[in-house]
């Protein structure tokens, strides 16, 4: 038996590297907002990092609410077929 080929994400340090790059980019995008004035159509958009925070909060909300939704709507796989 020969060793199965190693793939990129098989090494945990690669995952860490990717996450690092990603976090740096996130910070970078926030920093840009300090220097660059976006031309806006609505007052909310002028808030510092509006899109960034909205995106983050929206997604966390989405997932947490969806988890609660599971309690309400999740049933067994054979729910309909068992009739």
């Amino acid at each position: 038996m020969n060793q199965p080929p190693q793939h990129f994400f098989d090494k945990p340090e690669n995952t860490t590297k990717v996450l690092w790059i990603f976090h740096v980019l996130c910070v970078g995008l926030l920093v840009i907002d300090v220097f660059y004035h976006r031309h806006t159509m609505h007052a909310w958009e002028d808030l510092w990092g509006f899109y960034a925070f909205y995106g983050f909060v929206a997604c966390v909300m989405l997932v947490l609410v969806a988890k609660q939704l599971r309690k309400l709507v999740m049933v067994g796989e054979r729910y309909y077929s068992d009739g």
């Binding site: 996450l19 990603f22 976090h23 980019l25 996130c26 995008l29 926030l30 840009i32 907002d33 660059y36 976006r38 958009e45 990092g49 899109y51 960034a52 925070f53 909205y54 995106g55 983050f56 909060v57 929206a58 997604c59 966390v60 997932v63 947490l64 969806a66 988890k67 599971r70 999740m74 049933v75 067994g76 796989e77 054979r78 729910y79 309909y80």
Partner: peptide, 30 residues
């Protein structure tokens, strides 16, 4: 810039939730 901020921080939310195990697991269900 606005779009990139929105998307990157959405992704950040995903990685954060996933790393803290807050993300709901995939379950076989209806």
């Amino acid at each position: 810039i606005a779009q990139l901020q929105l998307l990157f921080f959405s992704a950040l939310a995903f990685t954060w939730l996933k790393l803290t195990n807050l993300y709901p697991p995939e379950l076989r269900s209806v």
